[in-house]
Amino acid sequence: MPIMPDISTHGWWLDWSLLIISMVTLLVGILSFALIILALIYFRQSKNPTPTRHLSGWITRLIILDISMIIFDIIIAVFSTWGWAETILKSEESLEAKHGEALTVNVTGRQFFWAFDYAGGDKAFGTADDFTLGNDLVVEKDRLVVLNMTSGDTIHSFFVPHLRVKYDVIPGRTTRVWFVPKKAGEYPVLCTELCGLGHYKMLSNVRVLEPDDFDSWLDSRTVTLSENPGPLRSGGPGQSQTVHVSDSKDGSLGARADRNVGVTPRSQ
């Protein structure tokens, strides 16, 4: 399948459910088309000049097909719900019990960039060491990440194909997604809900760092910040550009992001 390689721990559930559902569907499709083609060949006028008015035999009993369809449906429903239960439905408590303490990042989608708010070294939001990254989500390998997402203007959708994560980002609401990345690297984030003329350029990336790199990155952020109070500046090994997003941390939506920002460039 052309699906992107999976780098998350929960993606296994999704990929297998999707594979099984797709294969079952494909099988039913191939079977139907085989029968239809047979019908075309054997029952064309030149081959079968006298039609059979009443079909007989078990195959013509629609009730049998009802039952087989219900079985087919149950297979799909079971795998679908199973995969869903292992991904979206997981509560934060059960996740933390399994994977340890989560790295919580508050995400704000705006026309046409993503802002990622970190709690900094003290792991508490609303303190002096909070910082915000623009279009760059930095996370630690093998550590649970919980994203609390909201939007500053219209609906966006946060999609990371490699992480098997997609969820809408809605003004006035907070939606939550989680993942545990198991491979270091840089992975693209796409916006999958039409959000205006720059929708197609609303790109970002997730950088998964090894635990040691992540710690030193976090430390460097804290140092940079204590030396530079005031508007947040870029720094750290990732050289990500920081976007000043007013009043997104407390979740209120009063001020709109500067519309001239357009597509925020990432400095490399």
Binding site: W13, I76, S80, I88, F159, K166
Partner: peptide, 20 residues
Amino acid sequence: VGGLTGLQLGATVADIQLHE
């Protein structure tokens, strides 16, 4: 074909990757 692929999309879990 449309109906069968609709079944795939009707599965909640498929939407995480396939929605939109």
